[in-house]
């Protein structure tokens, strides 16, 4: 455990020194603040609460940005260290390979969690300071859920990045594959799913099949968890219709996201343990 903590501390320190933490936090904060002020402008008299609108905007933003940041910091975690020669050195120390993987994971997760909480927290604080609107407890809960699940979504893509990093032979390949994975999960999968639904016209694809298909993409699980979570938000985000057909409870969505962390991590550990340096 001490070893894992030491490794994760080093990862965090490197993240700070390499400006990764600053860059990720700054990016998320800037986008969140922009969305907060643009998003809250028209809501004065509309039924949706100011924070609800922010949650919806930020959740949509998260789906694009957080996986990208997570893949960027994780894709060279293993293959990069192998190329630099520090991995052989590290493994000549009394360290097990799964400790290396877990230590890096905790370090990278801490960086992501910091960036997300600070970035989105700033947006919420800005709203509190400037807005006169009353924010209900339900909205706060939705905001907390959104922030926490954003970190979880980040963890998913960190784990996927490690799997890529453990499998490929060089950093450039890892980077290419990481971008491909981002495109598939964030853009192409949903387009394909939409195309399928339109072409199918509700004949063969049942509600159950659709639910299963949504769970196979972690960003969809995240989207459902946040946009269709509570009644107000679901109405405001236009996802209320989905809720009635999709029978996915938040617990199932969280379980799906957790599985999306554990499975790639386990596969990455397996690939890494078999890898000859």
């Amino acid at each position: 455990m001490k070893t894992i903590l030491l490794l994760s501390t080093k990862e965090m320190r490197e993240g700070l020194r390499n400006r990764w933490v600053v860059a990720a936090t700054g990016l998320l904060a800037a986008l969140a603040l922009t969305l907060t002020f643009l998003g809250s402008a028209p809501t004065g008299t509309v039924g949706a609460g100011a924070l609800d609108v922010v949650v919806i905007s930020l959740a949509s933003l998260t789906i694009f940005i957080v996986p990208l940041i997570a893949l960027l910091i994780s894709h060279d975690a293993i293959v990069g260290e192998i190329e630099r020669g520090t991995m052989t050195l590290l493994l000549s120390y009394p360290v097990r390979r799964r400790q290396v993987l877990l230590g890096k994971f905790l370090g990278h997760l801490a960086i992501l969690a910091f960036a997300t909480c600070v970035g989105y927290g700033l947006a919420a604080i800005a709203l509190l300071v400037t807005g006169k609107a009353m924010i209900g407890a339900g909205s706060w809960a939705a905001f907390m859920t959104m922030t926490a699940s954003s970190v979880l979504l980040g963890a998913v893509f960190v784990a996927i990045g490690y799997l890529v990093s453990a499998l490929v032979a060089d950093r450039a390949t890892a980077g290419g594959i990481a971008i491909g994975i981002w495109l598939v999960f964030v853009v192409l999968y949903d387009m394909a799913l939409l195309g399928l639904l339109v072409a199918d016209q509700g004949r063969a694809v049942s509600g159950g099949t659709l639910d299963a298909l949504l769970l196979f993409n972690p960003t969809d699980a995240y989207r459902l968890l946040n946009l269709a979570g509570s009644g107000d938000i679901a109405t405001a985000s236009g996802m209320a219709g989905t809720i009635q057909t999709a029978a996915l409870a938040p617990a199932a969505l969280l379980a799906a996201l957790a599985a999306w962390v554990v499975a790639p991590m386990a596969l990455a550990a397996l690939a890494f343990s078999r890898r000859e340096l």
């Binding site: 490197e14 390499n18 630099r84 020669g85 520090t86 052989t88 050195l89 000549s92 120390y93 009394p94």
Partner: peptide
Amino acid sequence: RRRLGYLPETVSFNPA
């Protein structure tokens, strides 16, 4: 491992 020292042929420590 604790009683083993190793210097790889090429090692680039984190420059930061």
